[in-house]
């Protein structure tokens, strides 16, 4: 593999610099980072929604104001069953019934979503989405945008689990104490529980970002230009893959090490704010 390395290296440099391969490499690097960052942002939005649904209390109870409105409204209907059918009483009752169970229903949907996206490889999702589902729904988009959406949807499933774990790791007494002084459930979560959960979540989210950076190496299969795709082209044009693939690995390592250092700094900063006096 390494015989004639200097010859291979010279070939690679000619392809990279003189024949303009570096433009593709830079574009590919930009796309790799773009898919990972935007994918993580979409993933965080979806993940937050799923995590909120999954930690919400599941009793079939509406907020008391809404419930009182429904009670007053339903009370105005006649009592005779036949008249109730005519006046659509049962339709309104069914709406209330479904609303009461909305958190439960949403939770089931989210569970299914997470199972689907964690149960299939992201490459299958990309191929299925870009070549089959999006076209059949009449959605036209570039391979890059499709990759961003697929990676966002996929990472949403993982991020939701990270966030759920982070929220559950906060001692239940914190929520209880906030409720006991009179905060509503949502205010207690926002003011007390979530700020504590974020500290637990951030380092794990960083790992998710590293994983995403590496996973995006498959978007070439949908025809999007990323780092792997760019270096493969350089290899193809000279029938010489050794150096391009080694350099490609080095670039990934440098990227990941760089992000790891950033994460370490962030973690240290978070730990410091934990010890403040």
């Amino acid at each position: 593999m390494l015989n004639n390395f200097s010859v291979k290296w010279d070939k690679f440099i000619v392809n990279l610099i003189d024949k303009g391969g570096y433009k593709q490499v830079l574009d590919g690097l930009g796309n790799t980072i773009e898919v990972a960052i935007l994918g993580l942002i979409i993933g965080m939005i979806i993940g937050t929604v799923i995590a909120v649904v999954s930690v919400m209390p599941k009793y079939p109870v509406l907020p008391y104001k809404m419930q009182n409105l429904f009670d007053k409204f339903l009370d105005k209907f006649p009592k005779k069953p036949l008249l109730r059918v005519v006046t659509l009483y049962y339709v309104f009752y069914a709406i209330m019934w479904v609303l009461q169970r909305l958190p439960l229903i949403l939770d089931k949907i989210c569970t299914l979503y997470v199972a689907l996206f964690r149960g299939t490889p992201v490459m299958v999702q990309l191929l299925l989405g870009y070549f089959v589902l999006f076209p059949s729904m009449g959605i036209k988009m570039t391979a890059l945008n499709a990759s961003i959406i697929i990676f966002g949807l996929n990472s949403g499933a993982y991020v939701s689990e990270i966030m759920r774990g982070g929220i559950n790791s906060v001692d239940g007494g914190q929520l209880e104490a906030a409720r006991a002084v009179g905060f509503s459930y949502s205010a207690s979560m926002l003011k007390i529980v979530v700020p504590q959960a974020v500290k637990n979540i951030l380092p794990t989210l960083g790992n998710e970002f590293i994983a995403l950076i590496k996973e995006t190496s498959i978007i070439g299969y949908a025809g999007a230009l990323d780092l792997v795709f760019a270096f493969k082209q350089i290899g193809t044009s000279s029938y010489e893959y050794t150096v391009p693939y080694i350099v490609l690995s080095v670039i990934y390592i440098v990227l990941v090490v760089f992000i790891t250092i950033l994460l370490k700094i962030m973690e240290r900063w978070l730990a410091k704010s934990d010890r403040r006096h």
């Binding site: 001692d171 007494g173 914190q174 209880e176 009179g182």
Partner: peptide
């Protein structure tokens, strides 16, 4: 509205449950 009433009923816990943040 239980929240309104809880404001008037203080509670002290075995595990203190001070807001850590």
């Amino acid at each position: 509205d239980i929240n309104r009433h809880r404001e008037k009923i203080g509670m002290v816990f075995q595990q203190f449950n001070l807001f850590n943040n």
